[in-house]
Design a protein around this nucleic acid. Structure first.
Lengths: 178, 178
DNA sequence: GTGATTTCTTAACAAATGTTATCGTTTCAG
DNA sequence: CTGAAACGATAACATTTGTTAAGAAATCAC
């Protein structure tokens, strides 16, 4: 039986940190050498689109976040990562992961598993933008993570939904009138 | 020095096929066990969104295509793959790739490389939807692959751009008036 | 070849969003 | 505590897209 990623993670050296909100974990332009495991709080991955801040994804406790392409290809990251709530993370270094990976060849390939997982994630982010209206995506987000919607500024939510905060305000009004 | 994917591919058994347009390589619901290398022609990967046909991506000669998640996770594919022009492909079987992979552990990890590559691809598809207007994306597609735009029905293009064919028609008119 | 189908354009109207601006309210730093 | 900044709602108008429908042109099947 193959081990799961969550079983293997504790075997790799890591450091835990408690961070305040708005702490940057990785700035666009830097090359990612760390993976963060969210223990508590909330983190967002965002993209600077000509000065416009676009939230690509929110990460909740129990999930891992890194700048994917940068981490694997060792190129400057297109994305930044920052906490939006007070957050506790475990930080894994790329070299420690590689070391474990090379010394346990028979086991689950952590890197491949992480890569596949992130790829699947982007497929679904992509599909959700294609399939659903901003209004439907807002309703979905409300169901999946009401605590996010409640605790962070709406312009983060709006940029995640791919609309302006004005439009999100209108959507909220429409929904409250139903 | 690590080998590139394109150097390794010829070492793996494959079969070549010449296929007419509109040939389905994989139907949604099936589990992907093959990877296709496009030698000539053009292939599209598409998604059935409640009866609406959405083209996710076009694949040109020199690139590889498979239903990513289905291939790695051995789950039913959400996507279908079909030729849109007469196309020549080399077909690689998952078991042959795995065999090569396991018997050449020191070398480039084909699976990881393919997974990373597909993930990067989805990141960029995703970003391009976020950053650019349909009009800009149409202009980009015209530059990158004029032969596609010229040789396939416009509703494929429209669904790739995320708009209706009516809207694409309007965009074309706008551009021709500039 | 010919009739049927598909493709592409255009029109008219409805619906949604973007942009800009205003105005309370809340939050935050010092 | 207090002034400044950020936040959220709303209005007005422009722009874009979706929808539906109609018609011309190209393509396909037989």
């Amino acid at each position: 039986m193959k081990s799961s990623l969550l079983q293997i993670l504790p075997l790799i050296p890591s450091e835990a940190f408690c961070l305040p909100a708005k702490t940057t974990l990785l700035s666009a332009g830097e090359t990612a050498s760390k993976v963060f495991f969210i223990k508590e709080g909330c983190v967002r991955l965002w993209y600077n689109n000509d000065g416009k801040d676009i939230t690509v994804q929110f990460f909740m406790p129990g999930s891992m976040v890194a700048s994917f392409e940068s981490f694997f290809k060792e190129t400057p990251s297109e994305f930044s990562i920052e906490t939006i709530l007070p957050t506790t993370v475990a930080v894994y270094d790329k070299k420690d992961i590689e070391e474990y990976r090379l010394s346990h060849p028979g086991q689950l390939d952590i890197a491949l598993d992480f890569a596949i997982d992130r790829a699947r994630n982007y497929v679904h982010l992509f599909l959700s933008r294609i399939k659903d209206t901003p209004q439907q995506r807002y309703k979905d987000l409300l169901e999946e993570a009401p605590e996010i919607v409640a605790s962070i500024p709406q312009h983060y939510i709006a940029s995640y939904l791919g609309i302006t905060s004005v439009s999100l305000s209108r959507i909220r009004k429409r929904l409250s009138q139903e």
